[in-house]
C-alpha cells in the first residue's frame, strides 16, 4: 500500500487550507467588495471546467470543442432535479451534483462511442456539433423553459462549496493521470500504435477520459446553475467551450497547475480590466496573444521548466 500521509500530501493539505483561510478572511473582513465576492464561485467553476477539459485535450490529446455542451446537460439535469424534488438541502444538493455529473457522463458515453472512432479534426467537428445540438434542443424544450431560461432554481451554493468541489476535482483528476489508467491515456496521445501493441485498450481508455471529463463538466454546470439561480441555453454556446479551451491551452496542455492558474486569470482578467472599459477587450486579446507567443518560445519553456524542476527538487528534499 502507498503511504497516504507523506510530507508532500500534508503540505498540499496545508496549502489548500491556507488558501481557503485567506479567502474566508478576505470575504468576511469585507476586504473584497460585493462585486469581487460574486466572482469567487465562477472562478472555482472555471477551474473545474479547465481541469476536466485538460484530461481530454491535454492528456488524451483529442480536441474537444463541446465541453460547454456537457456542462449544460449537467446543469439542466441537476437543477431540474432540485426544482422537482423536495428534499432537505443537505441531501438534495449533493444528489443534484451527482445526478448532473452522471447525466453528463451518460451523454459522454453516448457521444463517445461513435465519435471516438474519429480522430483529430473530425472528432473536433463532431464535438462542436454536439454542443450546438444540445443548445438548440434545450432552447426548444418546454421542461427547460426554452429560450427564456430555467427559473426558480434555489441559490444553494456559495464559494465554500465550489472550492471544495474544485479541490475534489483536482485531486481525482491528478491522481487519475498518475495512475496506471492515466499512463494508458497519455500513451494514446504520444503514440497510438505503440500503446495498442503494448496491450492498452485504446477504445476503453479514450472513453474513460471522455466520460470522466464530462462528469466533472456536468458537476460544474450544476454549481453554475445553483450559483446564478437561472439557466439560459445561450450561456453554453460555442464561446463557452472555446473559453474553457483557451484556459487549457494557456495553462499548458497536460499541465493541471497551469489550468488552475489560467482559469483564475482568465475569469478575473476581464473584471480587473473593467476600469479601462473601452480598452478592456483589447488588453484581454493582447494578454492572450502574448501568452501564446511565450508558450511557443523555447526560451520561455526553458525558464518554465527550470522553475518546475526547482520546485520538484524542493519537494524531493522535503521528502
Amino acid at each position: 500500500m502507498k503511504k497516504v500521509i507523506t510530507k508532500r500530501n500534508i503540505m498540499v493539505a496545508l496549502l489548500v487550507i491556507a488558501v481557503y483561510a485567506a479567502l474566508f478572511f478576505l470575504v468576511n473582513m469585507k476586504v473584497l467588495n460585493r462585486h469581487y465576492r460574486s466572482l469567487l464561485a465562477p472562478v472555482g467553476i472555471n477551474v473545474i471546467l479547465a481541469v476536466s477539459l485538460n484530461l481530454t485535450v491535454g492528456f488524451l490529446g483529442e480536441l474537444n470543442l463541446g465541453h460547454g455542451g456537457f456542462m449544460s446537460i449537467g446543469a439542466y439535469a441537476g437543477c431540474l432535479f432540485t426544482i422537482y424534488t423536495d428534499l432537505p438541502l443537505a441531501i438534495q444538493f449533493p444528489l443534484a451534483l451527482i445526478i448532473g455529473g452522471a447525466v453528463a457522463a451518460i451523454f459522454g458515453i453516448l457521444i463517445g462511442i461513435p465519435a471516438l472512432r474519429l480522430q483529430g479534426d473530425y472528432l473536433a467537428i463532431v464535438t462542436l456539433a454536439f454542443g450546438e445540438i444540445v443548445r438548440s434542443v434545450l432552447t426548444n424544450m418546454k421542461v427547460t423553459g426554452g429560450a427564456g431560461g430555467l427559473k426558480g432554481i434555489g441559490k444553494s451554493t456559495n464559494y465554500t462549496i465550489v472550492y471544495i468541489v474544485a479541490i475534489i476535482t483536482i485531486l481525482i483528476i491528478s491522481n487519475l493521470v498518475k495512475s496506471r489508467h492515466g499512463r494508458g491515456i497519455c500513451s494514446i496521445r504520444d503514440n497510438i500504435i505503440a500503446s495498442e501493441s503494448l496491450g492498452v485498450n485504446v477504445i476503453f481508455h479514450k472513453l474513460l477520459a471522455f466520460v470522466v471529463a464530462a462528469f466533472f463538466a456536468g458537476m460544474a454546470g450544476v454549481l453554475y446553475g445553483q450559483n446564478l439561480g437561472i439557466l439560459k441555453p445561450d450561456a453554453f454556446d460555442f464561446n463557452k467551450s472555446i473559453e474553457i479551451l483557451v484556459m487549457v491551452v494557456l495553462g499548458g496542455m497536460g499541465n493541471l497547475t497551469g489550468s488552475v492558474i489560467a482559469a483564475v486569470v482568465i475569469t478575473l482578467l476581464p473584471e480587473i480590466l473593467r476600469g479601462f472599459s473601452d480598452y478592456r477587450m483589447l488588453a484581454y486579446a493582447i494578454v492572450l496573444i502574448t501568452m501564446m507567443i511565450w508558450n511557443a518560445n523555447p526560451r520561455f519553456a526553458m525558464v518554465k521548466n527550470n522553475v518546475y524542476s526547482w520546485l520538484h527538487r524542493k519537494r524531493g528534499n522535503a521528502r
Partner: peptide
C-alpha cells in the same frame, strides 16, 4: 516510444 513521458513511465506502460 512515448516521447513525452519519462523513461520510467514508458517501462511501466
Amino acid at each position: 516510444i512515448f516521447q513525452e513521458l519519462t523513461v520510467l513511465d514508458n517501462l511501466k506502460l
